[in-house]
Simulated assay, not measured.
Amino acid sequence: MVRIRLTRMGRRNRPFYRIVVVDSRKRRDGSYIDSLGFYDPLKDPAVMNVNVERAVDWILKGAQPTETARSILSKFGVMKKVHEIKSSKEKGEASEE
C-alpha cells in the first residue's frame, strides 16, 4: 500500500519533516516516490507547506495518510477537497442511472 507520511530530516535535536508518498514497506527515512511538502515544528508557530493539488491527486489514487500527515493535510483543506471530489463523482454516477 502507498502511504503519505513524514520522513525525518535535520540534525540531532533539530528535526524537520518532509511530507512524502512512500511504499508502506519502506523504512521511515528510506527512498520515497514523491515529496508533497514539509513541516518544521521548531519554529514558532510551526511552519508547514503542502502542494495541495498533488496531495489530492495521490489520495484519489489510493494513498493512505498517517494520522499526523492527515492532520497536517486537513489544515490545508486537502481532505475537504478530496471529500468534495468523491461526493461529486458519486452524485454524477447516481444521476446517470
Rank of each mutant, 00 (worst) to 15 (best):
R8V: 09
M1P: 11
F76N: 07
S87I: 04
I4C: 06
E53G: 02
M48G: 00
S24A: 15
D29H: 03
S31M: 07
V56A: 08
K86N: 03
I85R: 14
E67S: 14
S88F: 02
K80D: 15
G37N: 05
P15S: 10
V22S: 14
S31L: 09
G10N: 11
K43D: 02
R3V: 13
I72R: 01
Y32I: 01
E93P: 00
H83T: 12
G77M: 12
E53P: 04
R25S: 13
V47H: 13
R27L: 10
G62N: 07
S74R: 13
Y39I: 07
L73H: 08
A94K: 13
K80F: 05
R18H: 14
D44A: 05
M9D: 03
V47A: 14
M79E: 09
K26Y: 10
T7H: 02
E93T: 09
M1Y: 05
P65F: 04
T7F: 00
V2R: 11
R5P: 06
K61S: 05
A94T: 10
S24P: 02
K80L: 09
I33F: 07
L60C: 10
L42M: 15
E67V: 10
V56F: 06
D23M: 08
S95N: 11
R14Y: 13
I72T: 05
E96L: 13
I59V: 04
V22E: 14
R14T: 13
K80E: 15
D57M: 09
A94P: 01
V78I: 04
R12L: 10
Q64Y: 07
R54P: 02
I4Q: 09
S95H: 05
I72S: 06
E97A: 08
V50E: 10
E96H: 09
V56H: 11
F38W: 12
D29G: 09
R14E: 12
I72C: 06
E67Y: 04
S95M: 03
E90K: 13
T7M: 14
G30I: 00
I85H: 08
L6V: 00
S74V: 02
D44P: 01
T7G: 01
W58V: 01
Y32E: 04
N51I: 07
S95R: 11
L36G: 04
M9A: 05
I33S: 11
K26W: 02
V2C: 00
E97L: 11
D44K: 10
N13D: 05
E96W: 03
S24E: 15
E93I: 06
V82D: 04
R28F: 07
K89W: 02
T7W: 00
D29S: 08
F76L: 09
K61D: 07
